[in-house]
Simulated assay, not measured.
Amino acid sequence: MECVIYGEGTDRVRQVDCGEPAGAGRTVSKHLRELDEGEFAWVRLDSPTERELADLTEEMGLHPLAVEDAVQAHESPKGERYGDVLAVALRTLWYIESASEVETGEVMVFLGPRFALTVRHGWADPTTEAARRLAADPERSSFGPAAVLHAVLDVVVDSYTDAAAKVRTDLTDLERCVFSSSRDDVTEQIYTLKREVLEFRDAVRPLVPVVREFVTGSRSLWPHDALPYFRDVVDHLHRADAEVRSLDELLNSVLDAHLARVGTWQNDDMRRISAWAAIFAVPTVFTGLYGMNFRHMPELHWSFGYPLAVGVMVTASALLYRSFRRNGWL
């Protein structure tokens, strides 16, 4: 657990001791009571248990349902208001290029009148970068706890943009494989990337109306000066959402193109097999007829009968081969 007090100005950021998470509620409550005018506290938790959040629930006035969502960490992006506390659930994600997989986590942000509480699950930790950005721009501290929400949103949305760029790179590689001259079957890779893009979409799309509400809904949530910053996040999120939609549609097109090429390969193989079967049918007919061992058959006792039969078979097969080559079957 980390607890940082923010105030207006570059020298108004200080870290305080919150003790162990299991008994930190009273300590945090004491710090909140001792805040000066214009100050707010940011408490950061990593993968806490329900017991560790119990004290904070009572001392900070958190709703039990919101706390349950923060502990379970299986919520879709959403924003809920419980009295004076705003609870926002975000999905974090990072793209593993070596495995072409999207890994997800979750951050729950609670905003009170004079505090911000973030609860993180998963490998990615946007709160660390958010704290760095907030420290680098102390003027945003004047927004109050809303500055924490903006900083976390900004980092999360930037990670969406970075992940989308990496997914597009892998998709471009798949397109090259699909339209190359080789016959590599990349159906499994396309389906795998499609599944990851769907997981990506489930993280981005539900967040769009949530963040849009921050700038089009009730503006009493934070100072007027904070609205341009949230509009900037909305713009970036819309671009990320449009990119995910584009990736999803492109994957569908790539899959259709690949399946069409597989069908073409199969047709080519069937034409080659049919062409060779037709060529070998000519000598098969001749040898079959003369292999029936009837006594009275034409040219059985003629000296040139055998060479003539072989010549006819070779000539007919050669003509068929030439015809199939001209038609592109061979």
Rank of each mutant, 00 (worst) to 15 (best):
G79T: 14
R81T: 14
Y82R: 05
Y82L: 04
G83N: 04
D84Q: 12
D84N: 11
V85E: 02
L86F: 11
L86C: 00
L86H: 10
A89H: 12
A89K: 01
A89Q: 11
L90T: 08
L93C: 05
W94P: 00
E97M: 04
V102I: 15
V102Q: 00
E103I: 13
G105R: 05
E106M: 12
V107L: 02
M108P: 00
F110C: 04
F110E: 05
G112F: 06
G112D: 05
A116W: 10
H121Q: 09
A124M: 13
D125T: 09
T128F: 00
T128H: 05
A130V: 09
A131S: 13
R133F: 00
L134A: 07
L134D: 03
D137E: 14
R140I: 02
S141G: 12
S142E: 13
A147K: 09
V148N: 03
L149F: 02
L149N: 06
H150E: 08
A151K: 03
A151Q: 04
L153M: 12
L153H: 01
V157H: 06
S159N: 14
S159P: 00
S159I: 00
V167W: 01
R168L: 14
T169F: 07
D170I: 06
L171W: 00
T172I: 11
E175T: 12
S180T: 07
S180P: 02
D185G: 03
V186Y: 03
V186N: 05
E188I: 12
L193P: 09
R195C: 02
R195I: 01
E196T: 07
E199Y: 13
F200P: 10
V204D: 09
V204T: 11
R205I: 15
P206Y: 04
V211G: 02
